[in-house]
Amino acid sequence: MFPDRLASDPLVGTWVSLSDPAVAEMTAPGFDFVMLDTEHAPNDTETIADGIRAVEAADGDAVPLARALDNDLGAIKRLLDLGLAGVMVPMVETPEEAAAAVEAAKYPPEGRAASPGPAPRTTAATSPTTSSARTTRPPCWSR
């Protein structure tokens, strides 16, 4: 799983700021992850969901990650509810801000994320399934 690989192996990823899911699908092969941007790109929840499906449908083992718009509980929860393997939280400059980002990504009692239940997902590679791909410790980085 991605969290295990993240903890033990050096990983190489790519960055996608464009909203067309074909770009995410074309860039995914050969990388460990694809970072979908919502901070400095015209991506919203719908385009990130499309990007996730594109990365998952691509050849290879890349997993979708996303950079949140900011360190906001709702923004982080919304992204993780889409089934991302993790989030990058921008502009984290203090221990308190880092703790808030982690709290937004964890379920109670460790955090404040509400359980969304299984999210229906369809990719080109699979038929409709349910997925609850949120990790309990998504990676959070500061700039």
Score class of each variant (00 low, 15 high):
D37K: 06
A7D: 10
D20C: 10
L11M: 13
W15P: 02
A24M: 09
P3Y: 04
E39H: 09
V63F: 02
T38N: 04
D9W: 11
L69S: 08
W15R: 01
E46V: 14
A7E: 10
F2W: 15
I52V: 14
D61G: 10
E25A: 05
G51L: 05
T47I: 08
A41Y: 08
G30K: 14
L65S: 03
I48P: 03
P3I: 13
G51A: 03
G51E: 02
A58G: 08
A28S: 10
R5T: 10
D59I: 06
E56G: 04
E39S: 13
E46I: 13
G51D: 01
E39T: 09
N43Y: 12
T27P: 05
M26T: 04
V12I: 12
M1Y: 00
M1C: 14
D44K: 08
E56M: 08
D70M: 09
T47P: 01
L11E: 04
R53P: 08
A28Y: 05
F31D: 01
A24S: 12
S19Y: 09
A24N: 07
D4A: 12
A49F: 10
V16A: 02
A58V: 03
A62Q: 07
D59H: 10
P3A: 06
A68G: 05
A24Q: 07
V23H: 08
A49P: 02
A62T: 09
G13C: 08
M1R: 13
F33P: 11
L6T: 10
F31M: 12
E39M: 13
H40N: 15
M1A: 14
V55W: 00
A49M: 03
E25R: 00
V23Q: 08
P29N: 06
N43P: 02
A54K: 04
L11T: 06
G60F: 07
S17V: 06
S8A: 15
D20V: 09
D37T: 03
